[in-house]
Amino acid sequence: MTSPALDVALAYHRAWTGGDFEKAMTYVADDIVCETPSGRLEGAEAFRGFMGPFAQILTGSNLLSAFGDETTALLMYDTTTIPVASAPGAELVTVREGLITRLRIVFDRAPFDAARKAAVSGS
């Protein structure tokens, strides 16, 4: 079952998890507001600065579930990255006129913290 917001959220998700971050950014509004575990970001360039580096270390993704209606969508997924084998995350997306205007990202930071600690103690 699809909806307008879910269609946009899935297209965005497929693009950035498929290695085409520039295409993913075409679904993002210039004035996007993004809530992240480390704080609020405003504007497409701030969002690019946050998401771009993560997309570069991504090696795989498994979409676990996705739901949506006219204006909102919720995606839950698990990612594989260079430093972390399993990093679950979720995104609550608001879509207006075909673009993502608001995004709330929730992810488990513990695997990344553990990888950083292991890298420091191993050096």
Rank of each mutant, 00 (worst) to 15 (best):
S123W: 14
G18W: 15
R104D: 14
G89W: 07
L10E: 04
T94E: 15
I82P: 05
T81Y: 00
I57Q: 00
I82F: 06
S86T: 07
R116G: 07
Y12M: 07
Y12R: 03
S123H: 15
E91T: 13
T26G: 13
G18C: 11
S123G: 15
F112P: 04
Q56F: 05
R14H: 06
L75G: 00
R48W: 13
A55M: 01
S38K: 04
I105Y: 10
W16Y: 12
L74R: 02
V28I: 09
R109P: 02
G122L: 04
G68I: 07
F50C: 06
Y77G: 12
P37T: 02
M51P: 07
A110C: 05
E42T: 09
P83R: 10
A24H: 08
Q56R: 10
S121C: 08
D7T: 05
A73V: 11
V95L: 06
L99Y: 09
R116A: 13
D31T: 03
A24R: 04
K23I: 06
A11P: 01
G19I: 09
T79H: 04
T101D: 05
S38Y: 06
G18V: 00
E70H: 06
V28E: 02
G98Y: 11
M76W: 01
M25L: 10
V8G: 05
C34D: 01
D113W: 14
I100E: 04
Y12A: 07
V33C: 07
L75M: 08
L64S: 10
G68Q: 00
P53Y: 08
G43L: 00
P88W: 04
A66M: 13
D30Q: 08
A114V: 02
R109E: 13
A85E: 11
I32P: 01
N62W: 04
L92F: 10
L63D: 15
V28C: 05
S121A: 14
D78K: 06
S3N: 05
G18P: 00
T79L: 03
I105R: 05
A90F: 12
N62S: 09
D113K: 07
D7M: 01
R14S: 09
R96Q: 15
L58A: 09
L99K: 13
R96T: 14
P4G: 03
F107Q: 12
A85C: 11
R104K: 10
R48Q: 12
A87V: 06
L58G: 03
R96E: 15
G19H: 12
Y27K: 01
D30P: 09
K117D: 15
S3F: 03
I105H: 11
H13V: 02
D30G: 12
P83S: 12
